[in-house]
Structures are given as C-alpha cells and as structure tokens.
C-alpha cells in the first residue's frame, strides 16, 4: 500500500514539475533578442598543474561565441612540452594545438543577461609535434647495456573530442567553468615507433582514448543584438 502511495505521489510530482516547466517556458528569453557574447578563456588549472609537475607543461586558451539557439562556436588553442627523463629513455617534445567545434547549452536562457550554461559539445583537434633526438638504453637480461639514439621527428596528431561542462558568471562579465573531455585519437599509427608520452591538448600519445579536464576563467564581451 505504501508503495502505491509513493508511486502516486511520484506521478503527481511529475505533473506539477511539467506545469512549472510551462510557466518557466513563458519566461524564456526571446531567441531574437538573445544578444551577442564573445568569451575569452584560459585554463587556470593547467597553470597550477605546471608548477606541480616537472615532466610536462601546457597552456590552454579558448574563445567561444554565441551563435543562436543555444549553440556556441568554440575555438581553442595552446602549447606545451614534455620532458621524458627516465633512466633508460630520454627525449623532449614540444607542440602547439588547435581545437574547433561547438557547444550546445543544455538549459534555455531565461533572461537576456543570463549567459551561464551547462553544456555538451564536440571538437576536432590537431596538434603539431616536434620530438627531439631520443636516447635510450636496453638491457639484454645478461647484464649488457646497449645505448643508442633515435633521430628527431615531427608529426601531427588529429583527434575528436566529446565535451561537457558548465560555466558560471561569478560577477559582471567574469566567468568560471569546468570542461571534461573524452578524446579519441585518429592517427596514432603515424607517430611511428616512439609514441610521444604526452601531447599538449590531447594527453598520452600512446593511448587512443584520453580523458582530460579544464577549469577555465573567462571574460565575456556582450552586446545587444537590437539597435
């Protein structure tokens, strides 16, 4: 009996939520009057991470622009390096990267000045990587150490990303937000034998799938669509 009452209350609550949604829909901002937003971001978490980790560093920046209908065009760029210094393997890489794509806000805006958002999105990324000459040593299991070098190389990495996250307006024009990313490398085989341990903007070059996050701090320029 109590189960039935619980189910009944649950069904009634969904009706009341639907009614609330209709009320809220009537308050939604008119899409024609949605204004313009151009938001500049940098990843603050990577600045902190660069101080804590010697082996690699990365700097990431982004711009997003409100297109229409909850869609934002996004362009991101950055650069970084890795310094592999293991007893049996040493090399350095540097790379720049670019990402482009869209974010779609999950919630409709309720006021013209409301630019906070929860979102998911899609990116295409490309990185241009330079690896300097690598040195290695091998052990044949019999106590013989053999040392050698691998010539320097340049190559590019291509990947796609699924993103999700949120952006909050802390105070007028200044935003903070996080993004989580699932990345899928498209051309791992082109790296050759010595796959880079770290590609700034992507992650571990040895893995076809990578996960990452950003904590962006942003400033937005906003202007009205109507004159």
């Amino acid at each position: 009996m109590s189960k039935f009452i619980f189910n009944l209350l649950f069904v009634l609550s969904t009706f009341s939520l639907a009614a609330q949604d209709r009320k809220e829909d009537s308050l939604l901002v008119d899409k024609k009057d949605s204004g313009h937003l151009l938001r500049f971001s940098f990843d603050a978490s990577k600045l902190l991470l660069n101080q804590l980790v010697d082996q690699r560093s990365v700097y990431e920046f982004g711009v997003d622009y409100y297109v229409k209908g909850a869609i934002y065009a996004v362009a991101e760029t950055g650069f970084g390096r890795s310094n592999i210094d293991y007893p049996d393997l040493k090399y350095t890489t540097t790379n720049t990267f670019f990402r482009g794509g869209i974010d779609k806000s999950l919630f409709p805006r309720k006021k013209p000045q409301d630019w906070g958002m929860g979102f998911f999105g899609l990116r295409y990324g490309v990185g241009f990587i330079q690896r300097k000459e690598a040195s290695y040593s091998t052990n044949d299991g019999l106590g013989t150490i053999i040392m050698g070098t691998v010539p320097s190389a340049t190559f590019s990495a291509h990947w796609i990303e699924l993103t999700g996250g949120m952006k909050l307006e802390l105070f007028h024009g200044f935003f903070a937000g996080w993004t989580v990313r699932a990345k899928f490398l498209l051309n791992q085989k082109s790296f050759g034998d010595l796959k880079p341990a770290y590609i700034a903007g992507y992650g571990a070059g040895e893995k076809a799938t990578a996960f990452d996050y950003n904590f962006f701090l942003s400033y937005a320029l906003r202007w009205s669509a109507q004159k």
């Binding site: 978490s45 991470l49 980790v53 409301d114 909050l168 996080w178 904590f215």
Partner: peptide, 25 residues
Amino acid sequence: MLNKPRQNKCWFFLACVFTVLYSSC
C-alpha cells in the same frame, strides 16, 4: 540561469584544486 549561491562557487573552486592535485600525483 545558473546563478548559484556563494557556497556553490566555493565547492567549484575546491573541486578544481583537488582535481589538479590528483592529476599532479
């Protein structure tokens, strides 16, 4: 839309710091 109270913003920054520290480890 997402104008959260100050407490939520504190959680946001705490999550940021913990995630970065975890990544560094």
